[in-house]
Design a protein around this nucleic acid. Sequence first.
DNA 1: CATTCTTGTGTTGTGCACAACATCATGGGA
DNA 2: TCCCATGATGTTGTGCACAACACAAGAATG
Lengths: 248, 248
Amino acid sequence: MMRVEPAAEKPADEGARGRFERIYQILRTRICLLDYEPGSRLREEDLADEFGVSRTPVRRVLVKLEAEGLLRSMHGVGTIVTDIDVSELAQVYELRVELAELVGKLSPAIIDEALVAQFRDIRARCDRLVAMRDPRLFSQINMEFFHLFTTLTTNEPLREISERLYYQTTRIWLKTAARLSSFDELLQNEFVIFQREVADITEAVEHGDLAAAGHVRRAHIAMSFSRIRRAAKPATIRTHLKTQYSED
Amino acid sequence: MMRVEPAAEKPADEGARGRFERIYQILRTRICLLDYEPGSRLREEDLADEFGVSRTPVRRVLVKLEAEGLLRSMHGVGTIVTDIDVSELAQVYELRVELAELVGKLSPAIIDEALVAQFRDIRARCDRLVAMRDPRLFSQINMEFFHLFTTLTTNEPLREISERLYYQTTRIWLKTAARLSSFDELLQNEFVIFQREVADITEAVEHGDLAAAGHVRRAHIAMSFSRIRRAAKPATIRTHLKTQYSED
DNA sequence: CATTCTTGTGTTGTGCACAACATCATGGGA
DNA sequence: TCCCATGATGTTGTGCACAACACAAGAATG
C-alpha cells in the first residue's frame, strides 16, 4: 500500500468551503508529488475515513480533480490517477512555453519591495538546498517558485490556466525523470539549472523587466522538456527506484 | 420565472457518464445563451425534477460548472450564475486573443476535404442567416463556428482552454450587447462582420494557411471586444429589453 | 421610534443505505 | 483442454432524510 504523510492539523472552525478547499489542496499536492503514482487507484471510503468525513464531500473534491484532468472515475472500477504519454506531455509543454511568455506580457503586476523580497527569499533558499539532492524538496520549491512567478501578472485567467497545466505536467516530468538510470546526476543538473533560472528571473524582477522574466522562464521550460526527452531516448529503466518515495 | 425549452429526448440506454455529460451540456448551453441570466439563482431540486433524477447527480454537474467559473454555490443561499465586470472580461479577452493565434501555430491538424466542407457549410448557412437578426441564432452559429475553428489544432489542452474561456465570455458579451440602446444595429453589424470572418477563415483553411486563419481570428476577437467596449462607453441602458429572450 | 434578538423559512452540505456496474474466479459443458 | 456462463466481490453512482447555514421578518426591549 502507498504511504503518505498524515493529514496534519484540522482547524475546527472551518466551514464547508474551507474543508473542501483543504482536502482539495492536499490531494492535488499528493498527486503532483507522486505520493499517488499515475495509474494507482484511490478509494473514496479510505479518503473519507482519513479526513473524518463521509464519502459525499470527498466525491465533490474528486469531481473537481477529474475536471482538471488529474483523476478519472469509472463506475464499478475505481478512481485512478491519470497517466499521459509523451506526445500529450509535449502538447502541454508546447502550450506552457507560450503561456510563460504571456505572463511577462499581459497585465503586469506592480512590483513592490515585498514582491522582490519574496523572490530574493526563494533564491536564497534555493542556493542553500541545491546540495541536498532531494527530489521531493526540489519539486516543492519548484512548485513554490512557480506560484510566485505567476503573481507577475494580474491576469487571473492566465494564472489559473498556467497553474492547471503546471500541475498536470510536473508529476509526469518527475515520474519520467525518476525512471532514468541517470536520475541522480540529472536531478543535480536540474537543480543547478533551476538555481540559475531563479537567479535570472529574480534579477529581471529587480529591474522591473517582466518581459525578460517571461522570456527566461519560457526558455527554461522549453529546455527542461527537451532535456528530459533527450535523456529518455535510450529508455533505460531503473526498477525499484520508487523506494525513494515510499519506504515500504 | 425564467423560461427555458424543455430537456427534449432522453435516451433510455445512457449510463451514468452519459447522463452526466448530457445534463452538463444542457446547463452550460443555457448559461451561455442567457436562458439563465448572470446573477440568477438555480435550485438543485428544480433541476433534479426536470431531469428526472435526484439532487445527487445534479450536484455533480454543478460542481464541475463551478470549477469552470460559470456558477457559484453558497451554503444556505443558493447557486447563482456568475457575473463578471468589464475589467475581468478584458482580461479574458486579452488571453483569448493570444490563444486564437496559437491555434494557428501549434500542432496544426491535417486539413482534409471533410474539414474544408464543414467550413464551407457553416459559411453557407451564415450567409443565409445574416438577414434574420436573431441574437439567439447568432450565438448558436457563433458557438458552432468556434468549435470548428478549434479543430484546426490537435493540441488538446489548447482546445480545452480555448473552449472554457469562450464559454465564459460569450454570455457576458451577449448580455452587455443586449443592454445597449443600439442593440439592433449593433447585432446586424456584428453579424455582417462575423460573416466576413467566416469567409476569410474558410478561405485561409482552403489554402491550408492555418497561421493566417489564426491571425484573422485573433484580429476579429480583439476588434469585437473593442467595439463592444466603445459602444458601451455612453452606458445607455435600455430597460425591459430582456423580453427579447423570455416571452413573459 | 430605533435597535437588537429571536424565530421561521428556504437553501446547500452531509451521512448513510442501497442500486448499478465491472471484474475476476469458479465450475460446468463441449 | 478450451470456452462460456454464472455468481461473488468490490467499487462508484443514486436517492433520501437530516444537519448546517444564511437571510429576512417580526417581536421584545431600550
